[in-house]
């Protein structure tokens, strides 16, 4: 069966599929109930599953993530939504010191099957406290898995897998992608740690995820006009990371650009870059190029916000330096 779906609908569909099958799957967060979530992702789920399983919380991010931890430890498979990934700051202890560490600290005797949904990214005028991309904070924490889909099919399949996973999975959602439609042909889980070739090419590899997949695809179009065939790899999950797909691509292209929307310093793009440098150096015949947002908070004014974020030009310029 093939169906056009928005990214937001695909996330909703995956949550609903699992909630229909498994009474231990629950969703909670601020305004996720009858209001349907700040971005409408859970619209209608309150009507289908009721207030017990689609639960509005007070504004208490520490307790929201804590409820995920405690309920995951005692037999539920919770999905907790933070309205914006920026509010991780408020719930960070429960996530970093509790969720991520319990299995290990307790000698493997506890499971932590929880998902935290994290709307992220700039482009909406939300400014410095509502538009960050904080995925690298979480990839830095052993014990957390980190997922970041770029389209409806991946959002659906990765959400199914995230719910099924017995570990805390941090599920990043890009706010600017919610309304974008794409084709969904499979309702099966997509394994974590498996990247996807978004575009095949043989001259240059662009490694990315989330919304920047589209920046990369647009740049690839421009580059194609100049005879440079770029391959775009959407890693889909940051940890576990599909190193093989990157290696196989580099075996063809020997050149790599990494583009992520996070501020560049200390970003996950740096981890990808270091991994390539350490493990695939022999395959490279040009220095690795890494593109991110400016190392500043996200500015409010639309023109500054655009300047802050990476774009197609940045990729094209970096690519041209390689040839």
């Amino acid at each position: 069966m093939s169906k056009m779906m928005t990214y937001g609908e695909a996330i909703r569909e995956a949550m609903s599929i699992r909630m229909r099958e498994d009474p231990t799957v629950v969703l909670f967060g601020e305004d996720v109930g009858a209001f349907g979530g700040c971005f409408g992702v859970s619209a209608g789920m309150f009507d289908e599953f009721g207030p017990e399983r689609v639960r509005d919380t007070p504004i208490s991010e520490g307790a929201i993530i804590g409820c995920a931890v405690g309920s995951a430890a005692t037999g539920l498979r919770p999905i907790a939504e933070l309205m914006f990934n920026d509010f991780l700051t408020v719930g960070m202890d429960q996530l970093v010191n509790q969720a991520a560490k319990m299995r290990f600290m307790f000698g493997g005797k506890i499971s932590m099957p929880m998902v935290v949904r994290l709307p992220a990214g700039a482009g909406t005028g939300g400014a410095a406290q509502h538009c960050q991309s904080l995925e690298a904070w979480l990839t830095h924490v052993p014990g957390l898995k980190v997922v970041y889909p770029s389209n409806a099919q991946d959002a659906l399949g990765l959400m199914l897998t995230s719910i099924d996973d017995d570990n805390p999975v941090m599920f990043f959602e890009n706010k600017c992608l919610y309304a974008t439609k794409s084709e969904v042909t499979s309702f099966d889980p997509i394994p974590l740690g498996k990247g996807r070739i978004a575009l095949e090419g043989e001259d240059l590899t662009i490694v990315t995820y989330g919304r920047q997949v589209y920046t990369a695809l647009n740049a690839a179009k421009e580059l194609a006009a100049d005879g440079i065939k770029a391959e775009v790899i959407d890693i889909r999950s940051l940890f576990p990371l599909d190193k093989d797909i990157i290696r196989e691509s580099l075996e063809k292209t020997n050149k790599v650009i990494i583009i992520t929307e996070e501020t560049k310093r200390g970003g996950y793009g740096g981890e990808i870059s270091a991994t390539i440098g350490e493990e695939m150096f022999d395959l490279l015949d040009a220095p690795i190029a890494r593109i991110g947002s400016l190392d500043t908070p996200v500015p409010f004014a639309p023109n500054l916000e655009q300047y802050y974020m990476p774009n197609e030009r940045d990729i094209v310029v970096a690519a041209k330096k390689m040839f």
């Binding site: 005028g125 400014a127 410095a128 509502h130 908070p297 409010f300 004014a301 023109n303 500054l304």
Partner: peptide, 14 residues
């Protein structure tokens, strides 16, 4: 969102 606003356009309403 203008340069001569309170926060040089970096802050906005919030």
């Amino acid at each position: 969102g203008r340069y001569t606003g309170y926060c040089k356009g970096k802050g906005g309403s919030m």
